[in-house]
Design a protein around this nucleic acid. Structure first.
Ligand SMILES: [Mn+2]
Ligand SMILES: [Mn+2]
Ligand SMILES: [Zn+2]
Ligand SMILES: [Zn+2]
Lengths: 158, 158
DNA sequence: CGTTTATTGATACTTCGTATTAAATTTTGT
DNA sequence: ACAAAATTTAATACGAAGTATCAATAAACG
């Protein structure tokens, strides 16, 4: 990470630097890993990919970086299936929206959210400064609706 | 949990039973714990409260129940501060909305969300059946805006 | 009641994330 | 380009959160 030109930095790296954090190899590689993997990624996936890209990077640094990225709103942890470990998802321009199928745990991303109006209202009403949001819908995807009921809750309703 | 009358059941317990699950002591007590605690609660808090209410209930049952409640959409895990363990929040009628202050991690709940329109659109466009949603805004609360900048990102911007 | 079946409690275990600290890197200023 | 100052890191050992297992129990339902 020696003497790199700032015009070649990804938006995320730029934000990191503008927030006053050093642009270290660990941070750059973690971000690369997340971007390469795409979508919702677990820390385990990030760890694996990072050590493929740069085996020297320590496990603690990966967790530290995930934490930092979260605090800066670059990334957001989300709970998809079991009560286990979170999935991290890149926040594009402060926005992220998806639907989680409660039957198969598939996530469906979508782009449009009419949230700017509400955001503005909240900012005025509560005196807060909003920088991003996560919107999750829960429900049953088309495939799962079509398939034979697999789940007890559906079995018992004839 | 013997022979209880269904008219005295909380909405959550009703949902549990209508989904075909047995109304066990562990489940009832975990739900009581969550409702007593209120707001965003960690599994540790639930464990503690549960063992105060009914010391015989095993730790695994608490986690199993949190899992089940999540799958049924009665409760939703949310990530507030560190990258550690999730906080569970009760979904009231399928809705939950809050603002998380990225500076002090305080959460501000709010009621109104104009999401029914978008929900309907998505249902039609994607053929999904939606049952609930979580909406989180990120930003800086009034108090933190007023206070002297504590964070590096602010220190470095004169 | 008694039968059927889901669920539990106890415990041992795995795994994820963290604390610690000396060493290495990044930044900045000359 | 270089060195000083400050942050960040890698390595490792550690702790705590959640899980697998399974015999024992309790809910549901007639
Ligand atoms: Mn949006
Ligand atoms: Mn809502
Ligand atoms: Zn599905
Ligand atoms: Zn705040």
């Amino acid at each position: 990470m020696h003497h790199e030109k700032s015009r070649h930095l990804s938006p995320s790296l730029l934000r990191l630097r503008q927030a006053g954090y050093k642009l270290t190899e660990a941070r750059v590689v973690v971000l690369n890993a997340i971007e390469q993997l795409g979508g919702h990624v677990t820390s385990a996936q990030v760890l694996e990919r990072v050590s493929a890209l740069a085996p020297n990077i320590g496990r603690a640094s990966v967790f530290r970086t995930l934490d930092l990225l979260t605090r800066l709103g670059i990334v957001r942890p989300t709970y998809i299936d079991s009560s286990a470990t979170p999935r991290y998802v890149l926040m594009r321009d402060g926005h992220h929206h998806h639907i989680i199928c409660t039957s198969c745990n598939k996530t469906i991303e979508f782009e449009d959210c009419g949230l700017d109006a509400i955001a503005k209202t909240l900012e005025e009403r509560l005196n807060v400064k909003l920088t991003g949001h996560l919107l999750e819908f829960f429900g049953v995807c088309a495939t799962c609706q079509a398939s034979i009921p697999l789940h007890k809750e559906e079995r018992n309703n004839p």
